[in-house]
Amino acid sequence: MLTICMKTEQKKLKHSHLWMVFAGIPLLPAVLGGGNYLNNLEMLKSGWYSLWTQHSLFYAGFFYGPLIAIYCSYIWRVEHLNYNWNSLMTMPTSEWDIFLAKLLMALRCTVALQLWVGVLFILSGKIVGLPGLPPGEILFWLLRGSLGGMVTAALQLVMSMMVRSFAAPVAVALLGSVAGFLLSGKGVGMFWPYALMTEGMNANKSTDVLSSPVGFGVAVCGFLVLFTVVGVGYLKYKDVHA
């Protein structure tokens, strides 16, 4: 049933032109990061690692979270419009399937974004004249960041489900990401869902800050379960208001 629900979720996103947003916006942190790198060459001497500090600073701090938020807001926008809550909740599907189908769509988006950012990172490295390919470690951080992104996706999905506004949850994601960056610097990132993107991606750092992968894993899983349970509970126990 979950795959069936995903199929229909996929259909609901047709004609949305979302892909243009997701293709276009990640160019900005790539350009900003590359530019910063070139302007500070005398300080940034670790090649690919240095470029990563610049690229990920902008991307994790300002773009990744809001992009995920836009996707999640869109997923719910189609239901908030035109009384679709009534039909969504009278289909023969469990509340778990409804929420998980949307969550899996969002999770897929967090991974796809990271892959695209990886491509852009390599391209910008080539453009600024770095030799060879980036170290595998950086690509590992990138994908690990998508685990953090998944936590953001689950949280945004809950928020956009409860709030009819498209923009407000996106703004929250932006503020949350910036705060996450700061909290991460203070070493309490594990307790702030939006900080897990920064932590996972090792943003703005050239050596791995994640001394404890276990802690990170527990935080990711814990938040994912928490937000999913809250989301499904809302669908189960809240009166539908189309």
Partner: peptide, 12 residues
């Protein structure tokens, strides 16, 4: 069922 007003995805 058809409750209140028709539900539809307008972009489809």
């Amino acid at each position: 069922s058809l409750i209140e007003s028709p539900s539809y995805y307008g972009h489809l």
